[in-house]
């Protein structure tokens, strides 16, 4: 009810925030946006383009990338619901390679964001601050694939972590990370 009253007040357009050269507007959301255009439902092939490349995304500003992310996210949601419906009905999905294309452009976008953050971190601290997964021994002595995380307490105070991964932290060589010790 509350949402409905807001939407009616702004005539279908919600203004989230304002800035001197910027107006963020969100259209009145309909559930039908989770589905493809009605024209494409019965077609064998849907006309579509190609994914964004890294070189094209490097030209765009951070704000543009942030907007593009949500466009791609929305498209991906739509495609996944359509995929689900087609599998339930037992009909082959038209141009089913679209999901992979959206995935590829999303990956490229994240790569560009990471690049910019690494450049900033290297200037600030001299380290990339990149969380690279590596292999280490767990408490049973087996080699295990391990992903780094950010914690509030150091490892020697983290009891659950010590039970899982042994109290002794072994030295690790980073193969993919750049480490600058002295310039």
């Amino acid at each position: 009810m509350f949402l409905k009253s807001i939407l009616s007040k702004f005539n279908g357009v919600l203004i989230l925030g304002t800035h001197k050269n910027l107006l963020i507007k969100v259209k009145k959301a309909n559930l039908i946006e989770f589905f493809d255009d009605k024209k494409n439902w019965t077609e064998e092939k849907v006309k579509h383009g190609r994914p964004w490349t890294i070189d094209e995304l490097r030209l765009k500003s951070n704000l543009d990338l942030h907007k593009l992310w949500f466009v791609l996210h929305k498209e991906r949601n739509m495609l996944l619901t359509m995929e689900e419906i087609y599998t339930r009905k037992g009909i082959p999905m038209p141009s089913h390679e679209r999901v992979a294309k959206v995935d590829e452009s999303m990956e490229n976008l994240l790569a560009v964001v990471e690049e910019r953050n690494i450049a900033y971190n290297l200037l600030e601290t001299g380290e990339t601050k990149k969380l690279v997964p590596y292999r280490r021994y767990n408490s049973f002595g087996h080699i295990q694939y391990y992903k780094q995380r950010e914690y509030l307490v150091p490892w020697y105070l983290n009891r659950m972590w010590k039970l899982k991964y042994h109290y002794k932290k072994i030295p690790v060589i980073y193969f993919y990370d750049i480490q600058i010790n002295s310039i």
Partner: peptide
């Protein structure tokens, strides 16, 4: 169209400045 202007900022800080 080229809209990228290099700044001494991380991605998140830049967005925070843009959105106020």
């Amino acid at each position: 169209k080229e809209t990228f202007i290099p700044k001494y900022m991380s991605f998140e800080l830049d967005l925070m400045q843009e959105y106020g």
